[in-house]
Design a protein around this nucleic acid. Structure first.
Lengths: 330, 330
DNA sequence: TAAATTCCCGTCAACGCTGTCGTAAACGCT
DNA sequence: AGCGTTTACGACAGCGTTGACGGGAATTTA
């Protein structure tokens, strides 16, 4: 029973269309009429229904944010960047976890489309999605992070992951490490990912051997880091350093080292990626590759707004830099 | 240009109403007709518009989750609990940060109402909200965490904060501390909050002095913990232990101790609240009061669903337990 | 002063869906 | 055969809003 535009119109003695004009700041209304309508709006506490409006305008002032897992400390700051920017620009945000699971991600995206979101910001799983393309083909902006989609409707925001991975690996090499393992955080095609590439590049550029067995893939969570590092160090005791896809895996690796009586960094150096909060508080403090997560989130939302306000326009990919942060663990 | 119900109906040679019946599994449709309609749905890839449906049914299958700050490590797990449960039950969730700022919270709540969310899960600021009450009065469920609202339409989920605070403080007392400061995380009426109460209770029960100056309030973030603890320890060097409203403040306090050359826990014991992830990894590891954050989130959403599916019903407050986790910092 | 403009505002249909009601056919019963 | 009841479906209105269009009054122009 919230008041409708009709209520406002009646009270102000005008047509609903005129009331609508006032609400939407469309001109063509005399000052006096506008004042009357505005008074009615105030008195009734009228607020336009986004549903009804969306039904006719095809704009709902909502967007979807699909990320891997909000519990991964990488994401809250990203989300915060998106959310803050969205609040300022008048958008509300559906937040969803995909868990890097394609089926779930697909369901989620459909569900967002059902709600007629204006656009989607996505940290995608690896595989290309038919649905995404068809969503984008409807003229709905998609901002896609860290995955090189080739579609004019999909805008890309890319972290310099390969650079970061390369720097990290080279840092290990400079420290004298020659057998360097990697904990990958992606399920599927290991060697395709940028961070794996950077790692391999660094090895190659420095004439070091690479070994497929030294890369273990799994979900990017702490417990997996522990398991995988445990396995890695048991099967390949010669390894003296580990580069991890993200900080959680690195933290897990550090734990595995503790389990195995290996000291970090003396017996096994560990380096992560993301520079999550508290990375400088854990023991040993974590050497990692910093990403400005908040800025990343803001950037995504900003790009989303640009796409929304100028359709047809093609936006070039944005790259965002990373920075090696050397602490105790390597 | 996604297909509409009319498209489906035309293709199946029935009225939109009949198509609607099939979509919504309302009976009164012959098997044969149903099959034809379902075929049309499949062939067209039809999906009902939640907007249009919401306009008439007043149900949008969306809820709002308003929390303090998703970057506070307490919240991601809570959100995850809500989100997971919501996904299972077919809801999408708008996530919003209030920053404990009443004005922002109010704007946010209005904005959620504009989108006609079915309900709101709220970690509220202290002050009672007219709006909240009117929202709830419209028969829209509100689940309110940790604040004793007195309204039949608002369901309460309460952590046993006072218990936890009391246990924590008593733990400090048992360790021999007599001058115990507190870092509060709420802006406004310091002594009203449950955690402050628990702290004061413990002091009183053990015949220890309390001192208003020993409680410093501020936003529950790390930097504030550092500042506040710094101030506290400078002005009252006699203090040998600090109980913090949450782990972030506690972590800040530990940093302040480091700044001041005080060793933790020898020179100053510190105890937090929440048991955030990595609390067991920081140095020194953090003594804290554990809350099952994921379960809390799930519980909130579960309660939300119950309220949604049986309106009119009154639900009693739920309490959720806490547990003192003793580690190195105290 | 007539014609052309501009300004202000209203009517109507539509967005995609569901609720209410009506109705024709089929069925069961006396 | 006549009656009521059930089954299966459609017509229609309406949810709250906006866009396309139209028209009268006021203002300008010739």
């Amino acid at each position: 029973m919230p008041p409708t535009l009709r209520d406002v119109a009646q009270r102000a003695g005008v047509s609903t269309k005129t009331a609508s004009r006032v609400v939407n700041h469309q001109g063509e209304v005399s000052d006096e009429t506008r004042a009357r309508v505005q008074a009615a709006i105030r008195e009734l506490g009228y607020r336009p229904s986004k549903l009804a409006r969306g039904l006719v305008t095809h704009r709902t002032d909502t967007i979807g944010l699909v990320l891997g897992d909000i519990c991964n400390p990488f994401f809250p700051e990203v989300a915060r960047g998106v959310l803050d920017n969205a609040e300022q620009t008048g958008y509300n945000v559906f937040v969803c976890n995909s868990d890097g699971n394609l089926a779930k991600e697909t369901r989620t995206l459909h569900s967002l489309a059902d709600h007629a979101v204006d656009g989607i910001i996505l940290f995608p799983s690896l595989e290309i999605e038919d649905f995404l393309l068809s969503f984008a083909a409807q003229g709905r902006p998609v901002v896609c992070v860290n995955r090189p989609f080739e579609s004019p409707w999909i805008s890309r925001v890319m972290m310099r992951s390969r650079d970061g991975a390369r720097q990290a690996t080279e840092h290990l090499i400079n420290k004298g490490h020659k057998k360097i393992g990697m904990l990958n955080g992606q399920a599927k095609p290991a060697t395709r990912h940028e961070r794996v590439r950077g790692y391999l590049e660094a090895l190659g550029a420095n004439g070091l051997p690479e070994c497929a067995d030294w890369i273990i893939s799994g979900p990017p969570v702490l417990e997996q880091g522990r398991r995988a590092a445990h396995e890695l160090l048991m099967q390949h005791p010669e390894i003296t350093a580990i580069f991890a896809y993200n900080d959680l895996l690195a933290l897990g690796a550090i734990q595995a080292c503790a389990d195995l009586g290996r000291r970090v960094p003396e017996d096994c150096a560990v380096i992560g990626f993301d520079d999550i909060p508290l990375a400088d508080r854990v023991s040993p403090t974590l050497t990692t590759v910093r990403v400005d997560k908040y800025a990343l989130g803001q950037l995504c939302m900003q790009r989303m707004c640009e796409m929304l306000s100028s359709p047809e326009t093609l936006f070039p990919p944005v790259e965002i830099g990373v920075e090696l942060i050397v602490r105790e663990s390597a």
